[in-house]
Simulated scan of single mutants.
Amino acid sequence: MILQNYLFTLLILFACSVAGKHFRFDYDYNEYVDGWFKLHLIPATWHDAWLRCDLEGSILASPINYQMKIAMEAYSKAKKMDDCAYYTGINALFSHGDHFSVEGESLARMPVKWAPGEPDNFNNREDCIVLTNGTIADVNCSEIFPYICFKKNTKDIIMTTCGTVDKEYKLESLTGNCYKFHQIGKPWKRAFMTCAAEGSYLAVINSPQEALLLKNIYDANHSKIRPGTSKDVINIGMHDWNEHGVWRTIHGLTIEEAGYADWAQGQPDNSSGQFCGAMFRNSKLDDFWCHASAPFICEKSLDSLLEL
């Protein structure tokens, strides 16, 4: 059954690559600018909006030219957002008063007009730009607004067998899923966010065999872990937030129900409030500080980013 599903998915991926218009199911292709848009309705600060787009493999969209301006306005209208303000990638965070898009394009060269009374740089703290009704306004970057991510179509966008354009995901026959090792350590919640943005999830161990698989991935990447982060453990998808002492996977099962609960000797020890799950290099489990940075592994099903 796994092989049958795998071959079926390969056929889908081949069709998408031939069409040349596939990025991920939650992005909408726009032929006018030869790229994909995604509206994030949940408001965020400018930095969090930038980060979410970046983690999804895109950028915070900006009306850098006439084509992008028209396409963004049409897209926001289609999403019934034409009367709402939303973040663009334009900001003056590097140099107050010098506005550039995240691609480095100067605001002075963009085909946009300021809204009446703008820019006002209220309290001398408005370094980010929102777009609304075809005009722009400066706002405090800590305010929250919806935002649009954009991915430009390029020749190097190739859908892999893992159902993603991210070439770092590798298919493992043991589980039929794909895995990616993140060498730059992050706190558990940020690791969770990173995997979710990539269309995957913080790796869940469902058997001793999968624990060994993660160990092998860990070993193969250990020397590549960036300085400044723990090399002794990796973050994985379990926690005991809801009821301390009852460890569950991010899918809601207890780790016993999930199929793997092999703790390292003396663990879990709940040292100073260790409520997030980790794994040692010997594949044994550890309770770890949620705020501490550690490398992590994302796990992805083949169809998680495909249109169903």
Rank of each mutant, 00 (worst) to 15 (best):
L107H: 06
D54G: 14
F122R: 08
N91C: 13
W50K: 07
T135R: 15
E103F: 07
C84R: 10
Y32S: 13
D28P: 00
H96T: 12
D34T: 01
A108F: 12
K38F: 01
N133Y: 09
K69S: 14
E31L: 09
Q67W: 10
G57V: 01
Y87M: 01
P43I: 03
T135E: 15
P111F: 08
E126Q: 15
L51T: 15
I42C: 06
I59K: 10
G35P: 06
G117V: 02
N91L: 05
W50A: 11
A115S: 12
P63V: 01
I59H: 09
D28A: 08
G89C: 04
T45A: 03
E118D: 11
I129K: 02
D48Q: 11
V102D: 03
H99Q: 07
L55W: 06
D48L: 09
L93N: 09
P63T: 08
C53K: 00
E31P: 05
S106F: 13
Y87A: 08
Y27T: 01
F37T: 05
K38L: 08
L51I: 14
I136V: 11
L55P: 03
T88Y: 07
N124I: 14
M72V: 03
Y87L: 10
R125F: 08
E103T: 14
A137Y: 07
C128M: 04
H40Y: 15
N121R: 04
H99D: 07
G134R: 15
A44V: 04
